Simulated assay, not measured.
Amino acid sequence: MKGAKGLFNYLLIDNWKGDTGRLITVKNLQKTYKIIKPAEGRFATFKSLVRPQYEERRAVDGISFTINDGEIVGYIGQNGAGKSTTIKMLSGILVPTAGEVKVNGLTPHKDRREHLQNIGVVFGQKTSLWWDVPVIDSLNILKQMYQVEEGRFRKNLEMFTELLDLGPFLNQPVRQLSLGQRVRADLAAALMHDPKTLFLDEPTIGVDVVAKERLREFITEINKERGVSVLLTTHDVIDMEKLVDRVMVINAGHLIYDGDINGLRERYGTQRRMELRFEGDLPVVSLPEVTTEILEDGRLAVVFDQHKYMADEVIFHLRRSGSPIRDILIRDADIEQIVRDIYQEGKSEEEMKIF
């Protein structure tokens, strides 16, 4: 418990009162790391030890955005894109190389004590709880650290126990919990002091389907009932579709999209899929850049770029084949495929810097 005592002394803070304004404001934020450049030739390892050569890599490269009270924002990107680095700068763990960041009117790495009173953070692969003590003991320690009043603590504990189903494992040591149980306990711990802002870094990764759904319901409820703003990094497309109002996409340290999911589909999901059943023979499609596939049930799938063709144009072309159309199903671009395409194809420097 020595570690807990030291953390208590570090985080002990008075109640902070201040003007929130916009919840989060980020301007030209950068984070650059210096890494050792591998030496070449004979005695390469010795050279690296005696006279290392460094090169700079920008994990986050001049991003800007604002988040207002009550928003749930999804922050997505492939591994190494800069998501976790951004979260760590917003939470005050990392100091930016350049740029400005304000959360609740505070600079996270400078006003760390005041800042921590107003945020909650959950890293899906790391716990903020004490490994060898029961969950309830960890929550009581956090109560003392954040100076949470007894009545408020009991009210929060009751609410979180019900919404997150903590009861079966409140008295178990954290090391005995499943991943899903541990993440639920971490969420309760992050919100016990009623923060205004919640940073979630891959909270559902590796969690089973039932636990994921409970976590999503809890995040939605806490946002609706308490107005907690949430910045969520995730690889789970269902998280995005069920939780977020707005999506930001980061690629190689650049923010390449900031808007709603429909806008993401409109900008990147240009491919539409039409599945048709004909009364007679399947037609031969001769439209440029339109692809077809015969499905197992005899239907014809036609894929086209909605920026080049209207659906009516494709249907008119197919009707000219002479075979009457019995049924049509048009599918918009799948969000999972859109995100996968963004990751795999990448974007030019010019496009990256648009935002």
Rank of each mutant, 00 (worst) to 15 (best):
A311T: 15
R326D: 14
K242T: 14
P324C: 08
I136M: 06
N156G: 08
K5D: 14
G18E: 05
V209E: 07
D332L: 01
M352T: 04
V148C: 01
L232S: 06
R57Y: 14
I35V: 15
Q181F: 12
G280D: 08
I250T: 03
G263V: 07
D260V: 09
G253S: 01
G82R: 07
D305P: 08
K224Y: 09
D194R: 12
L157R: 05
T292Q: 11
V237L: 02
E336A: 05
R326A: 12
M240V: 15
K37C: 05
F304A: 00
L276Q: 00
K17E: 15
S229F: 04
D305N: 15
M310W: 08
D312K: 07
I256G: 04
I294A: 01
T86D: 05
K27W: 04
R246H: 12
I294T: 15
Q53E: 14
M192Q: 01
G298L: 09
E296M: 02
L7H: 04
E296W: 00
K102Y: 06
E221V: 07
R57S: 09
L287N: 07
G105F: 02
D327N: 13
R299W: 04
S348C: 09
E162D: 13
E350V: 13
L170F: 03
G82F: 10
E149Q: 14
Y33Q: 06
I238M: 04
S64Q: 06
K212W: 00
S229R: 05
V314C: 00
D305H: 06
E351R: 07
N140Y: 01
